[in-house]
Design a protein around this nucleic acid. Structure first.
Lengths: 140, 140
DNA sequence: TTTATAAACGAAAACCATTTTCATTTAGAT
DNA sequence: ATCTAAATGAAAATGGTTTTCGTTTATAAA
């Protein structure tokens, strides 16, 4: 599974460095979104010397090449999660455990049409963030 | 038009201060989203002494009582715009002139159902941000 | 395998939006 | 007119994120 991401790295001219690989490993084993700070703590378990700027750089690069997505929570902080995003879809985020789940849903074609009809405007991008309680958190 | 917002202020126990009224006036004459910094500059044209913390406090309070909405742009900054939001709807934002337009559209009922069906989860909130080019910016 | 080079990285500081603290002022009720 | 909680200004603090720059490393070519 990680191999697919490594290919994406190389396709975009990003070198295959130990730190990038470890970030991929951590993110792929994590079902919840994660803060750069927490990722930094996890990375320090493996690397004696790794700075927070490196973590930020890696996350930004990964976001640029489309293998991570960032979300902004109410605390005005960025969080990140891994998603290949091959097909258009959205994510459901549990506000309690922070788990991110893919939702087979995207209404952008409809939205584009409505924006054209109602506003004579051109919709180019959209971001949909859905939050609530996941199955496990509902049961507990 | 502003009167409605003033009522909302008082309904929520916020005093009718000159600075809050001026913020309402500026926002109601502004069709684009605005940064706290720019709002501060505009407010200083009328008030000799007004601090940035006051601007932030007013915007947060207005957001709490539902008369302004905040959005986060790629520069990691918060911007604000006025909207009464009486009915469920979303906004279209022009990425060039930053104008905010209401769009008669909300698919949340459907989303709730899909989240229940696909994930056995409960969708509680959603944020949809639609960006593109408005009519004027398309023509120019 | 060695070498060359651009990319990656660490350390430290800078940046800057936002928040907090606290003393003073003010809006609105009595 | 008086009172009191809310609002505000000033200054500093906070803290997430970015920049700078010198050093190291991944990778391709020799």
């Amino acid at each position: 599974m990680i191999n697919k991401y490594i290919e994406t790295l190389q396709k975009h001219g990003l070198k295959r460095t130990p730190k990038r690989l470890e970030v991929l490993r951590i993110l792929s084993e994590e079902s919840a979104y994660i803060s750069p700070q927490k990722l930094h703590v996890l990375l320090k378990e493996k690397f004696l010397k790794i700075g927070l700027p490196t973590v930020y750089r890696i996350l930004q690069q990964f976001q640029n090449i489309g293998i991570v997505t960032s979300i902004q929570q109410d605390d005005n902080q960025l969080y990140y999660y891994l998603c290949d995003c091959v097909e258009k879809h959205h994510h459901f985020i549990c506000r309690k455990c922070h788990k991110v789940s893919c939702l087979t849903y995207c209404d952008f074609d409809n939205i584009k049409q409505l924006v054209a009809d109602q506003l004579d405007s051109l919709a180019e991008t959209h971001v949909l963030q859905i939050e609530g309680l996941c199955k496990e958190c509902l049961e507990s």
